[in-house]
Design a protein around this nucleic acid. Sequence first.
RNA 1: CGCGGGGUGGAGCAAUGGUAGCUCGUUGGGCUCAUAACCCAAAGGUUGGAGGUUCGAGUCCUCCCCCCGCAACCA
Length: 534
Amino acid sequence: MKTKKRILTAGAWPYANNYMHVGHLAAMLPGDIVSRYHRLIGNEVIFVSGSDCHGTPITERAKRENVPPFEIADKYHKSFKDCFARLNFSYDYYGATYEGFHKEEVRRVFLKLYEDGWFYEQKNTQDYCPTCKTFLSDREIRGVCPHCGQISKGDQCDECLASLDASQLKDKTCAACGGATAQRENKSLMFKLSEFQGQLERLLAARQDTWRTNALNETRKYLEQGLPDRAVTRDLSWGIDVPVKGFEDKKIYVWIEAVLGYYTCCKKVAGERGAAVGDFLKDDGNLSTYYIHGKDNIPFHTVIFPALLLAMNPAFQLPEYIMSCEYIKTNNEKMSKSLGNLIAVPDLLDAFDADTVRFYAILSNPEKKDSGFTTAGMIGAHNKILVGGLGNFVNRNASYLKKKFGGVVPDGAVDQGIADATRALYKDAGARLEAGYTREALELLVDYVQAANKYYDDRKPWVQAHTDPAGFGDTTATCLYMIANMSNLFYPFIPSAMERLKGMLGLEAAKWEEARFTAKTLGEIGIHFNRIEN
RNA sequence: CGCGGGGUGGAGCAAUGGUAGCUCGUUGGGCUCAUAACCCAAAGGUUGGAGGUUCGAGUCCUCCCCCCGCAACCA
């Protein structure tokens, strides 16, 4: 008997200052597929994510729109939540960093790390605006670019694109009020990241088979440079207050806080199930952890977060699977609002069925390299595979039985070769899913559907029905068997369509193991996927 | 020489150094159970360029050319 494993699927936290687009979707949807798969094979899953609601960009947008930052964060958080619900994400909890339990728990962890000596105070001089009475980050400063002489932001020059930091600018002014800046002494808390160099190098070595190539390379680069200590406090107005004496006016660096959301939400869900988070997350050989995000998030998940976990509790499992995707491109360009090629998920869901979107988002997922996502491509995949492949296979079988035999299923035996191939498919696709490669798994399933249609054509049941009743029975049994198994295999990818199919055919609840078709008669069979005309 | 990802039939992609394949599109055929759905076949490539290593290079080495990301709204 197989032992039940514990699974944490940790989806990236989208930043709540704009609507969700297909890039977010590409990065996060594989987390839902993996979670659903693990539930089907009987594991205990905690699947969490949430909205990243603090930080400068939200504050800036709030200022521009003349509303409190909370309003911005809350608006987009609600939009995210709505998208995930419409997309059928099976989160055990989807939170927001502004929620009380998260803030409280983060402060508790932060204070504990401080008391354990992982943070130290550092004094420095920083740009300060006397008018706005605040310290300024690089991007809040304007000044003369040393390369081209134009007025530039502090982080990168708009004119000559040189990468800068604010100390290189001359005649610095505050971006908000235009007044001259002053140098003032400031202090921050630094995290002793450098002390984890050795442990993180060992982690990297141990994860050669389970982290994506881009994560391995990116992490190696950081480790080869040598890890510096990192500031964990910021001079912002919108965020979680630093719980350390003398730092009450500062906020916790958003990346520290957001990444701890995996922990706070896991603790919340575990708690609701009557379990301790420490027991759930301990690396006892019975836990697997998956982290799902885009490649720009890699160092936060392979360096910062593991270091925090080590500082919190050395018994915790460090990230086991890093599912860091590449980017979605449109016409070989990065998607962006300004280029007008960004596809917003709410718009997509207004126009298309959630399963269609899910199916195409996985089939075109930038799993190993950049890929494209177009509505034309999505319509093509829907019509070709869901309508012409899967839906058609169900429909051609069912409608023939209904029309000629009143829906009565003839006696017959399932083809042995196909049964073997089906069992092998559960194994192979399961192995791909377990390793975090959802696109590869789905491609195997698509092949199965194509083979099923080919089998039907080769056997010609519409001829067999007249010339070879026994052969017709076998063909029908084999096809219905394949349909029953498709309804299991596709379940993690397109759950609502497969629920519908199971309902129509009286099939039992999805499991990740060979199913048999047992009904003696077919009920009313409707159309599963409608062709999208364009 | 900043870092990284790429350049393969019309489009999108695949190929541990060993006969360049797949999907879509195109053309022709088959079938008529099925939502102009399904099945088969053909056409279409000197694998960005130039050298080199090798019995053998899309794959390894050197040089060159081109596209994209690393900044913003972002995975």
